[in-house]
Design a protein around this nucleic acid. Structure first.
Lengths: 203, 203
DNA sequence: TTACTATACGGAGGGTACCTCCGTTTTGTC
DNA sequence: GACAAAACGGAGGTACCCTCCGTATAGTAA
C-alpha cells in the first residue's frame, strides 16, 4: 500500500510497519517508547505500568497514549517484528521431512513464547476473536503454519480430522504453561504433538 | 486437627474449611463476601475489583481485607469446595476401564475449568511454585489423579515416560484456551490425550 | 441485666495507575 | 521569519489497592 515495498516481503508482513509517525520528534518518541516498553514488558509482564513506560522513555503520558491508544497496540508494536521473523523462519524447514518440519516449527514457536510470557498471554489470548488486535501476527502465523500442516497431512503423518486453528490453540496453551524448566515444556509439547500423528481411520 | 471431622472426609480436604471465623457477625460477613466474590469473579474474571466486591457484600473494605488478606485467598475460599468436589468425583470412575476412567476425569476437569476462566488462570497459574496458595486444591487434584494415572500406566494404556504433574500442566494449558465452542476444546483435549497413549518403546 | 473485653467493623487516607483534555511547543513549509 | 499543522506534556478526575485506627458489637462472667 505505501512505499515500504521490500519486494521479497509478502503483503501480510507490511501492514503494520507503515503506521509509523512522520515528523522527526514524533518518530524519536515512538522509538523511545517501544524500547522502554520492551524492557518493561520483559520485566513486569503484560501489566507493566504504562506511566512507568512513559517515564522510562522520558516522554509525557499523553504522548504515549497518542502513539498507542491502548496497551494492546503498544504490545503489538513491540513484538510484531519478532513474531513475523519467527514465522518467516518456517522457510528454513522445507527440506526436512513433513513431520519433522511441522514439529520443529512448533517447538521453535513454543520456545520463543516461553521466554515472553507477556506476549504469549495477549497474542494467544484472543486467537480468533477481536479481529484486528495482533491481526498481522495471526496472519503471519497462519501463513507460516498452513503449508507445513498441509504437507504433513498430505504425507499422511498428521491426522486429518483437525486444522491449523486447533493446533495453534493447543500449542499456544502449552506455551503459556508457567514452567521452570524449558525441557519440561518441550517434553509436554512432544506428548501433545504425538497426539497429532496420523492414525488409521478404523480404531 | 480441629473438631471438623466429618469422618468420611480425607485429611487433605479439611485443611481450609477450619479457618472460618467464629463470631456471629464475622461469619455473616464472611459468607456475604464469598457470595459477592463468586458473582464478581464470574462476571469480571480474576481481576474483579475488591472494593466492588466489598460494596456488593455491603461490607467495609477493611472487613474484606481482614478476612482475606489478598486476592488469592479470596479466590481460593470461593472455589475450594467446588474443586474438591470435582476431585472427589473421580471415585465414580473406578469401574470404567483404566484409559476411559483417566480420560473421562480429565475431560470433566477441563469442562469445569472452561466455565471458570478466572479460577483456571490462578489455580493453574502456579502449579508447583508458591507452595501454599491453592495448596489444598492442588493436593486434592493430585490425590484424585494419581491413582487414575497409575492404573492406566500399569495397564499399559498410558505411556510411562511421563507423570501427573506433566499431565496436569498439559491439560491445564488446554483448559485455559479461550474458545467459544466447548466441543472444540474437547476435540483439542482429545488430540493431546491421544499423545498420552502407550507406545511400544521401539519406534 | 449490666459491665467488660476480645473481636470485628468500616472508611478515611496515602499511594499508584488509567485515560482524557487542552494549553503550549516544535516541525516543516512557503 | 511567519504560520499552520502536528505533536508534546502533564494536570486532573476517577478508580483501585491496601493500611491503619477509632468505633461498634458479640459473647461472657458477675
Amino acid at each position: 500500500m505505501s512505499a515500504t515495498d521490500t519486494s521479497d516481503t509478502p503483503a501480510a508482513f507490511t501492514d503494520l510497519a507503515a503506521a509509523r509517525p512522520k515528523r522527526a520528534d514524533a518518530l524519536r518518541n515512538y522509538e523511545k517508547l517501544i524500547a522502554a516498553a520492551r524492557d518493561a514488558f520483559a520485566q513486569d509482564g503484560t501489566s507493566a505500568s504504562l506511566e512507568e513506560i512513559a517515564r522510562r522513555a522520558q516522554v509525557g503520558i499523553g504522548t504515549l497514549y497518542r502513539h498507542f491508544p491502548n496497551r494492546q497496540t503498544l504490545l503489538e508494536a513491540v513484538y510484531v517484528d519478532e513474531v513475523e521473523a519467527l514465522c518467516r523462519s518456517a522457510a528454513d524447514l522445507s527440506e526436512l521431512p513433513p513431520w519433522d518440519a511441522f514439529v520443529a516449527w512448533l517447538h521453535r514457536f513454543v520456545a520463543y513464547m516461553a521466554t515472553k510470557q507477556a506476549l504469549a498471554q495477549e497474542l494467544l489470548g484472543c486467537v480468533d476473536r477481536d479481529a484486528n488486535v495482533f491481526q498481522s501476527c495471526r496472519t503471519a502465523l497462519y501463513a507460516a503454519g498452513e503449508p507445513l500442516l498441509q504437507r504433513a497431512q498430505q504425507a499422511r503423518v498428521v491426522r486429518t480430522d483437525t486444522n491449523l486453528l486447533e493446533v495453534i490453540q493447543m500449542v499456544g496453551g502449552i506455551a503459556k504453561i508457567p514452567s521452570t524448566e524449558p525441557e519440561q515444556i518441550d517434553h509436554i509439547l512432544g506428548i501433545a504433538l504425538d497426539g497429532l500423528r496420523y492414525r488409521e481411520p478404523s480404531a
